[in-house]
Amino acid sequence: MTHAASLFLNRPLMLSSARSALLKRSFESGAGAEAFFGEREADAASYEVVQGVALIPVSGVLLPGRGWSWSGATYYQDVRKALSAALDDASVSRIALMVNSPGGTVSECFDTAEMIYQARGDKPIWAILNDAAYSAAYAIASAADFITVPQMGGTGSIGCVGMHVDITDALDKAGIKVTTFQYGVRKTDGYPTTPMSDPARERAQADIDEMGDFFVQTVARNRGMSADVVRNTQAGTFLGRHGVEIGLADQIATPEEAIAAFLKL
């Protein structure tokens, strides 16, 4: 298993349903996670300053860690580092999170969102959606003071998902027998060479439920919404004005319009 694959298999994710389906298909076809992202590229600059506004990119799939990259991915530690630097930068008066992402891992997501939320009041922070902020990306955007979304952009997917890959049938057909030695009855709960038992499935679902509820409570606090309203979205995604009507965003605007308005503050 590659390092990239280990970031996704048998761990909770906060991805839009469409991107989760693509990831599932990628693994089912035998492709590595690298095919999901593309080729490696050098790290991008942490942020750009335009007329006193620090533009911090939050794009592509969101992953834990920093220092290595596939195109189309952003790393939570890089976002936190950029935010910290922008808050300390005397040339920066406002901070814009430039968001276009289907979401990513649960790991490090809420720590990053909490850092943004706690920075409110230090400098104005806007989440300006280039297109969509779904799932983990919406958790990040919700922590900002203000959210703009294009007419056909999207918000939502407030939920979590987990995947377990069971390769036991494939091994049987290939004539391969795997013998597992373990200490602790739950040690192999998530192993692809071990069928998932009903108790293991229940424990996995309980973890997803707990994280999903935490996501709901976080968004409700960040956006000043009722937790019931957030929960009743049932992880749905909402185009532009529908997200504004629910309370998931504040204003319809293109990124250019949003930046122009932000500069006038």
Rank of each mutant, 00 (worst) to 15 (best):
N100Q: 11
A96Q: 02
I56T: 00
W70F: 15
V50K: 13
A33H: 00
L62H: 04
S84A: 15
V99F: 03
G65F: 06
A85D: 14
E41T: 08
A82N: 06
Y76Q: 08
V79R: 03
V61T: 14
A96F: 00
S91A: 15
D89N: 12
S59T: 13
V61Q: 02
T74G: 07
V58G: 00
G103Q: 02
L83Q: 01
Y75Q: 11
G65W: 06
S69Q: 12
W68Y: 12
Y47Q: 02
F37H: 10
A85Y: 10
S59A: 13
I56V: 10
A54D: 05
A35V: 09
V99T: 05
A35T: 10
W68P: 01
Q51H: 11
F36V: 09
M98L: 13
V50L: 09
E39S: 11
V53K: 01
S71F: 09
A96E: 00
P102C: 14
G38T: 03
S71V: 11
S84L: 12
L83R: 04
R80S: 12
A44Y: 06
K81R: 15
A85S: 13
A90W: 07
T74W: 01
A82P: 04
A90M: 12
D78Q: 13
V92I: 09
K81I: 13
T74F: 02
W70M: 12
Y75G: 02
N100C: 13
A42Q: 06
V49Y: 04
G65Y: 07
A85R: 15
S69A: 14
I56Y: 00
V49N: 08
R40W: 05
L55C: 10
Q77S: 15
V99H: 01
L87Y: 05
S84C: 11
A82I: 03
S93G: 14
G72M: 02
A35K: 12
R66M: 11
L63N: 03
A45W: 05
G60Q: 02
D43K: 08
D88C: 13
S91R: 13
A45D: 09
A42S: 08
D43M: 10
Y75M: 06
E39G: 11
L63P: 00
G67I: 05
I95T: 03
W68Q: 10
A54C: 10
Y75A: 09
